[in-house]
């Protein structure tokens, strides 16, 4: 199974869960990295919109999802190729090409002190709700989004729940004593 291959790769050249296929494959001018057999690109933050627009021209027509990961407390290796500086946040965009019948994952490093990413709304209008969800859950702003507001949490909510420094939390159970019979 494809899942066994990264383990071999990590013993062979020391890079965890990352293997670059023989002759370097390129998409939109970026080298394709394989993660468990799936194609991954690592575009820079500033060029994300241009890369996605170029990929759209190349047949990656649909944006399946936009999500993010907060790597604040991630202990393991980050499986990033050389030259990509790891940052706290990572915005993940998944595209699909119906012609190639394959999906493509874009992983964008987003620094903690400036969590802003160009919005994909102009290229894929369907990313609207997903970007709002990422903003709501991670506090990552999308530059150029038409209506960047909270989508799932209440409007007056403090904080961004899916950040790793946001506690799961619990509501204290209060046993209010019963009112005395009158």
């Amino acid at each position: 199974m494809a899942a066994d291959e990264p383990a071999e790769a990590s013993t062979a050249d020391g890079a965890a869960a990352t293997e670059v296929t023989g002759p370097t494959e390129e998409l939109a001018g970026l080298p394709v990295v394989r993660s468990l057999g799936q194609r991954v690109l690592h575009p820079a933050r500033a060029e994300l919109r241009e890369v996605v627009a170029r990929l759209r021209e190349e047949g990656w027509l649909m944006c399946l999802t936009v999500t993010a990961v907060d790597y604040l407390v991630h202990d393991g290796a980050r499986s990033l190729p050389e030259g990509i500086e790891p940052e706290r946040f990572e915005v993940v965009v998944i595209l699909i090409s119906h012609a190639e019948r394959d999906r493509l994952r874009l992983r964008v490093q987003v620094p903690e002190d400036d969590p802003v990413v160009p919005s994909l709304f102009d290229v894929h209008p369907g990313s609207e709700a997903m970007e709002r969800e990422v903003f709501d859950m991670f506090g990552i702003a999308f530059d150029g989004h038409p209506d960047l507001t909270r989508i799932l949490m209440p409007e007056d909510w403090q904080g961004h729940p899916l950040r790793k420094d946001f506690a799961v939390g619990r509501i204290p159970v209060q046993f209010k004593h019963a009112h005395a019979a009158r």
Partner: peptide, 18 residues
């Protein structure tokens, strides 16, 4: 360690898990 995206065709469309 690793990251993966898998999807199936649910009655409503592409149901994916990252």
């Amino acid at each position: 360690e690793g990251e993966v995206y898998v999807a199936v065709e649910s009655p409503r469309g592409e149901l994916g898990c990252y």
